[in-house]
């Protein structure tokens, strides 16, 4: 992180939330160092805005970031947040330790699709099973972007990546279904093309007591968009797609490729293939939360009932 990013003359009136971001606060002017059109810039921006508008107390909402392109969000998130860069895939386990040692905290975990469903799958499953009070944000750009565009557990069938040069032939894993099966009590998926729904879900997750899993479909233009055609989700139509080489085309493709939960009920298997189903999948606010249950155990251990 030696260079903080391209610096251009500061123009007035500046976007108010730039100065709230960490690097903006440090340098007075900042633009994210991510590729043009990357979804993480959008998410970092929205997170900073939410952190500022909700007036969250930085001491109670530590950030645990996994390893990936989104690790650069250390610079774009709110300047007052306390951030830990955990190991690849181990963010949910680190957050469990933090939460249990200081039960007032509610860790916010940034993980990627490879980070959470690939190497960190076991920790993700058990954090959801325990219904620990934390927010797990899974950024699904269906590629290992930081290391150069390798295939990920969530790469779409038939997509090209550096480790699947011919065609991705494996079945893809679904973060939401995994979270539902593991027992997370608030599961939702949205895309970066719907920024306001992500803000709505995030505000709901902040108030929800228990594990809330929000999966976000983000475009990765440089490694996924440029190498794949935009008929990925619509094979059954037999269209001849074109390369999605700009973020606009990818956001357009994401919008076309994401189906609302209720709408998906009326679509058959062939139409739903390679599609993202967005919406809220489960909201069970009154499930027992892990740290409360452990407080009861502590009471029993001290002789109470």
């Amino acid at each position: 992180m030696s260079g903080i990013g391209p610096m251009y003359p500061n123009e007035k009136p500046e976007n108010p939330y730039v100065l709230v971001s960490y690097a903006g606060h440090l340098l007075g002017n900042y633009s994210s160092r991510l590729c043009a059109g990357c979804g993480y810039g959008i998410i970092g921006h929205i997170f900073t805005r939410l952190f500022e508008d909700e007036k969250l107390d930085p001491k109670l909402y530590p950030l645990v970031l996994g390893i990936g392109c989104y690790s650069q969000m250390l610079l774009t998130v709110h300047y007052a947040t306390q951030k830990v860069l955990s190991l690849h895939g181990r963010a949910p386990a680190l957050a469990t330790g933090m939460k249990m040692a200081n039960p007032q905290m509610k860790p916010i975990i940034f993980t990627g699709d490879g980070d959470c469903l690939g190497i960190g799958g076991n920790h993700f499953i058990h954090t959801c099973r325990r219904n620990l009070d934390c927010i797990i944000l899974i950024f699904n750009n269906s590629i290992y972007a930081m290391t150069g565009g390798q295939g990920a557990p969530t790469t779409l069938f038939g997509a090209k990546s550096t480790t699947t040069p011919y065609k991705m032939f494996e079945n893809r894993s679904d973060g939401v279904k995994l979270a539902l099966a593991a027992g997370a009590t608030y599961v939702a998926r949205t895309t970066v093309a719907h920024p306001r729904t992500f803000m709505k879900y995030f505000r709901k997750a902040l108030k929800h007591k228990g594990t809330s899993v929000i999966e976000l479909i983000t475009p990765c233009v440089t490694y996924f968009g440029r190498k794949n055609l935009n008929n990925l989700g619509a094979e059954y139509l037999g269209l001849k797609g074109e390369k999605m080489d700009t973020a606009g085309k990818m956001i357009d493709w994401i919008k076309r490729n994401s189906i609302r939960v209720n709408q998906a009920k009326f679509m058959n298997e062939e139409e739903l293939f390679n599609k993202y189903i967005i919406g809220e999948f489960r909201y069970a606010p009154d499930q027992p939360e892990y740290s409360d249950e452990y407080a009861k155990i502590q009471k029993i251990a001290r002789g109470g009932i």
């Binding site: 391209p6 251009y8 003359p9 123009e11 500046e14 976007n15 633009s31 043009a36 059109g37 990357c38 959008i42 093309a193 920024p195 233009v221 700009t246 973020a247 606009g248 085309k249 956001i251 357009d252 919008k255």
Partner: peptide, 14 residues
């Protein structure tokens, strides 16, 4: 903010 724009067309499609 013209100079900081990366030309990613996200706003056009959003």
């Amino acid at each position: 903010n013209k100079n900081r724009c990366g030309g990613c067309q996200a706003c056009v499609y959003v």
